[in-house]
Write a protein that binds this DNA or RNA. Structure first.
Lengths: 138, 138
DNA sequence: CCTTTACCTAAAGTTAGGTTGAGGTGATTA
DNA sequence: TAATCACCTCAACCTAACTTTAGGTAAAGG
């Protein structure tokens, strides 16, 4: 029975994730992609599992987590079931943090929407004079 | 008739915004706070208008706008009605950008929520073994 | 009168998260 | 056979956004 393992080159992975090749090498160097294999010529070959790790890294980055914390998490996964509590706690804290960021982002969007309306009126008027009075004083 | 203008010290402003004093000085140096007055001793006194500018700066920072772009916007406001189009366009692009970020943040939250459920089950089980099979395959 | 407090400037230092450059390998294409 | 391509390492470099340091001023409190 054949083991036919599909793998990807660093260029393909970079393309897939919209990351630069040096960035992926940097993540590897930082230990963010465990079990990443290299062929006999020293060329990286990314497994589906490595791709999954990269997806998670992207998620954690989007959540605003610094690289060193992502690294910590990856180290925990390598230690197995002994670190389940730490990982659970990490994600619970992350959830709170992301919820807070969402709320803040919504407030930001509200302000930006207000400013859009403000400047639409202003550009229509050709001046800020009128809209300033209308919108600032209640 | 008295002009009784309320102003704030840099320490008060730092407190109000949760920023460090050097950060506010840095923003001032970068030209982000126009018309910021200093008293005869060279000490900054922040007017309500300056506070409003700082509020907007915080909003733009939260929207992910770099300092140099915020600076550009401030420069436009100083040029008056001639730059209304630029400012309107800036906020329209910013709205798109913030909406995109919100969407992405929601996806991130979904993943984080999934991971919370995953690790809750795993910590309850004391191992990842079972939850891995249950949640990964389908 | 002295010292503590809150401010000041200018310049150098720091950190995160990459990016760039020099020099090199191995496989495919002309 | 030559050259182009996609990859490699290692080390140096870069940028944004602050922070820290050194040295100094003005006013209020003990």
């Amino acid at each position: 029975m054949q083991e036919l393992a599909v793998t990807y080159s660093i260029g393909e992975v970079a393309e897939k994730f919209g990351l630069s090749i040096p960035t992926i090498r940097y993540y590897d160097k930082e230990g963010l992609i465990p079990n990443l294999q290299k062929n006999t010529a020293g060329v990286r070959r990314f497994s589906e599992d490595n791709i999954g790790t990269l997806k998670l890294i992207e998620c954690l980055k989007n959540a605003g987590m610094p690289i060193k914390d992502i690294k910590q998490f990856i180290q925990w996964t390598l230690l197995g079931d002994e670190t389940l509590d730490e990982r659970y706690q990490m994600f619970q804290e992350l959830r709170i943090s992301v919820q807070k960021q969402m709320k803040q982002m919504q407030e930001t969007l509200d302000t930006v929407n207000f400013k859009c309306a403000y400047y639409q009126k202003a550009t229509e008027d050709g001046t800020e004079k009128f809209v300033k009075d209308e919108m600032h004083l209640e």
